Amino acid sequence: MQLSVEISKYPLNSDYIPFIKSFIERLNTHKGLKVITNTMSTQIFGDYDDVMNVLQKEIKASYEQFGKCVFVCKFISGDLSPEA
């Protein structure tokens, strides 16, 4: 089953850019996922289990590395990527 996720990260820190960049860079290291970033959010497309495992790992890493932040997510079944 394919999954599409739109995720926005809001670090609770005035120097927020490095926090967001780090998260996006880590997402891009996972093969099998399609990651598209724009100025408002990051979209992730791939196999349901793969996407959920990566998000679990990388959200936890964000909390451990940077402390408090807010993640806002939308989960949609299927591949809604622009190339699909």
Results as ranks from 00 to 15, higher is better:
56 Q>L: 10
31 K>G: 11
30 H>S: 09
55 L>P: 04
66 F>A: 02
4 S>R: 00
39 T>H: 15
42 T>D: 05
31 K>S: 06
21 K>C: 14
64 E>D: 04
20 I>Q: 04
28 N>Y: 04
82 P>K: 02
68 K>N: 08
35 V>T: 09
68 K>G: 09
55 L>Q: 04
67 G>K: 00
39 T>G: 11
42 T>G: 10
84 A>T: 08
59 I>S: 05
38 N>T: 03
11 P>Q: 02
7 I>C: 00
77 S>R: 12
82 P>N: 02
70 V>R: 06
65 Q>S: 13
12 L>D: 10
72 V>K: 02
19 F>Y: 10
69 C>K: 07
34 K>C: 11
33 L>I: 05
45 F>E: 01
38 N>P: 02
60 K>F: 12
80 L>E: 11
39 T>N: 14
30 H>W: 12
60 K>W: 10
72 V>F: 06
23 F>W: 01
29 T>W: 01
67 G>S: 03
33 L>E: 00
52 M>T: 13
5 V>P: 01
3 L>C: 03
23 F>M: 00
24 I>Q: 08
64 E>S: 03
16 Y>W: 12
56 Q>R: 08
63 Y>S: 07
63 Y>H: 14
73 C>M: 15
75 F>I: 01
7 I>N: 02
82 P>F: 01
65 Q>I: 13
70 V>G: 00
28 N>S: 07
19 F>S: 06
66 F>P: 02
77 S>E: 15
69 C>P: 07
47 D>T: 07
15 D>R: 06
34 K>Y: 14
7 I>M: 01
56 Q>H: 13
42 T>P: 11
38 N>C: 05
21 K>S: 15
4 S>Y: 04
6 E>L: 08
11 P>G: 02
3 L>F: 05
62 S>F: 07
1 M>C: 08
57 K>S: 13
1 M>T: 09
63 Y>L: 08
13 N>G: 11
14 S>R: 11
10 Y>S: 14
26 R>M: 09
10 Y>I: 13
5 V>T: 03
77 S>K: 14
40 M>W: 07
73 C>R: 13
62 S>E: 04
34 K>T: 14
9 K>S: 06
41 S>Y: 06
28 N>P: 05
60 K>N: 11
79 D>C: 05
14 S>A: 14
27 L>K: 04
35 V>W: 09
64 E>R: 03
19 F>H: 12
52 M>K: 08
18 P>C: 02
46 G>M: 02
15 D>L: 07
59 I>E: 01
5 V>E: 01
55 L>K: 00
12 L>M: 13
58 E>N: 04
42 T>H: 07
83 E>A: 15
50 D>W: 07
69 C>V: 08
24 I>V: 13
58 E>H: 00
53 N>E: 12
